[in-house]
Design a binder for these strands. Structure first.
Lengths: 338, 338
DNA sequence: ATAACTTCCTAAAACGTTTCACACGCTCGC
DNA sequence: GCGAGCGTGTGAAACGTTTTAGGAAGTTAT
């Protein structure tokens, strides 16, 4: 009942053990009549392959892991969905691990994955310095692809989105709409994404708007509450100095700003225009639909998985690649002063 | 480099293979000096256990799977986080699989999991009829716990939330606020949750509000867009027949309603009060913070994992249990007519 | 001095699969 | 009629671990 092995199937079908294996893996090498006898035996006994034995023999597993910073973050769930498509298509299995931005948990996961001899790992590593946890995998010859982290290192592949460009797109749009006093809301700047998006906005301003001004209103983190606080602070400014538009480092901040401003009786976009970042599902569902910079999240996952499979196939001959995607501005009512 | 086995460690340390195994699994049975020699060898060779071999020998794996309908749904991601805590504490590993509400994908995942000889499966199955996919696992003796699905069957454990009670809580709250003309927005009623929540609301009305009225405005699904359409329809009613409050089958619908109503110049909660269901993260961040019925999502996951581990331990002596949690009403501004 | 215990270690078997070398019986082509 | 080649099947080895029975010393009790 619980565990029929290939051996019992063989006995049942009156063939040798190797023949059963052939039916499973190279059916064309087995005469139709024999094949059918074996298949019948399999069905009758409810035989199911034992993957441990198979892997042990093969020396490698068919599973690929993705280690994310937060399973509950819409960004990562979409990346996972993208990776899933590619991995399943290749007949492999994707397991999702959650580091929760905790380096110790990340390490523990990677150790377990190493014991399982995973085929490869997609990961957005915790922190942004050296990655000792990843070094071990590398020594072991397990392919690693960095997700949403550009890699200076030539020793592994990476996929990321051009956040500088994203900042630029948002800023150019606001300039096009005629805004000349604009605020950037986001923080902390130690997060590469926050810094890059600001850099892009600043660059666009330098090129395009000699007469315009970009004020930075740093936030402690990227939450709705932080956005609300930042908006409160903007409202303390004399009306003439108040920005006519804000560009937020992510959508959560933008939603907080939107909420605070409308709560205080200001109209969006007429009094203040808002552009967010990420284009999360609720950007479109906000009280005033939110303009936002969209990242190709699923594609990020798909591409990362493809690079990984490619590397796993190619082995030594593989050349590492760094793919950078371009974000896209989605204009909605919050910044559309018609 | 790539694969040092126990055998090489043994040779390196000048001991037998069994001794190395003892160092790994029963260190106290090994003399300190020998133990140290072995540990040094392990470190030097970068030895990592091969889990396939270990499992093959043990006949069972240490991984537990959770199969969800949608990895991107905040409800499930929270359940996953809860399950994760318990599973990791037990030294096991949780793998997350996504059925995407597709029965074929669900089956394929379960087959792979069966091949891996998983220790157990937490699952919210696709559909609500018979579950042939689950029957196979059961025959094989793999414990299964149903998540967010009450189970009539005594053959497995389940954890769920009392949706009837949730509907009742929402309704009683609205009645307490003095509302007498109330609408229930949600659909399709083939989804157990939608039907249960309505049943609870209806029951509360029957008991408490002899003079009140509950109008049902069915929707095609549970999205923001559906909520917006339903709100439009409500607005076609003559003002005197218009409900003064709406109870929505989930928060997405509620957000759609909120958006449409405020867009048309109505005030929430003064003109119309709104209560949603699920208490998703954005309920609190909406333009008017949304009252909602909160489900103990993480606890759902934790409990499910505990039941599973318990069953996996106990084996035959295990008695199946059905745990039902109580939801909780979170009152915010959208229904608080101060 | 011997038996009975410990303590520490070894050798070998087993888990279920895949693969490889080979054997058997045919049919061809010459 | 004979080697070559093909199609089909067999048996054994190997993957790396855990476990079990037991052996070789050393210690204690008699």
């Amino acid at each position: 009942m619980s565990a029929a092995s290939i051996k019992e199937v063989a006995r049942h079908a009156g063939v040798s053990l190797g023949t059963v294996s052939n039916v499973l893996n190279r059916p064309n090498n087995v005469a139709p009549a024999t094949r059918q006898r074996v298949l019948d035996a399999i069905a009758e006994l409810g035989y199911v392959r034992n993957d441990s034995a198979r892997q042990l023999r093969a020396g490698q597993s068919r599973t690929i892991a993705i280690v994310v910073l937060d399973v509950a973050n819409p960004f990562f769930t979409d990346v996972v969905r993208g990776a899933e498509q590619v991995v399943e298509e290749a007949g492999a299995m994707l397991v999702v691990c959650n580091s929760g931005e905790d380096s110790a948990r990340e390490r523990r996961h990677l150790e377990l994955l190493e014991e399982q001899r995973v085929r490869g790992v997609l990961i957005t590593p915790v922190g942004h310095g050296r990655q000792p946890n990843l070094g071990r995998l590398h020594n072991r010859g397990i392919p690693v692809v960095l997700v949403d982290r550009g890699s200076g290192r030539a020793s592994r592949c990476s996929v990321a989105v051009d956040d500088v460009l994203g900042g630029r797109l948002a800023m150019e749009h606001l300039l096009d709409q005629g805004h000349r006093r604009i605020a950037y809301l986001g923080g902390p700047f130690s997060i590469p994404q926050v810094a890059d998006r600001h850099a892009g906005a600043a660059a666009a301003l330098a090129e395009r708007g000699p007469a315009a001004e970009l004020r930075v209103a740093p936030t402690t983190n990227l939450t709705v509450a932080a956005g609300r606080r930042a908006a409160e602070e903007l409202l303390t400014l004399p009306v003439r100095q108040r920005p006519s538009a804000v560009f937020c480092a992510n959508d959560l901040i933008a939603l907080g700003v939107l909420q605070e401003l409308t709560g205080r009786g200001l109209r969006v976009p007429d009094d203040v225009a808002i552009v967010g970042y990420d284009d999360i599902e609720f950007a479109d569902a906000a009280a005033v639909p939110l303009s936002s910079v969209r990242q190709p999240r699923e594609q990020l996952g798909r591409t990362a998985a493809q690079l990984l499979l490619e590397e796993a196939e190619a082995g030594e001959s593989h050349r590492h690649r760094h793919v950078v995607f371009q974000p896209e501005l989605v204009v909605r009512r919050s910044s559309d002063r018609r």
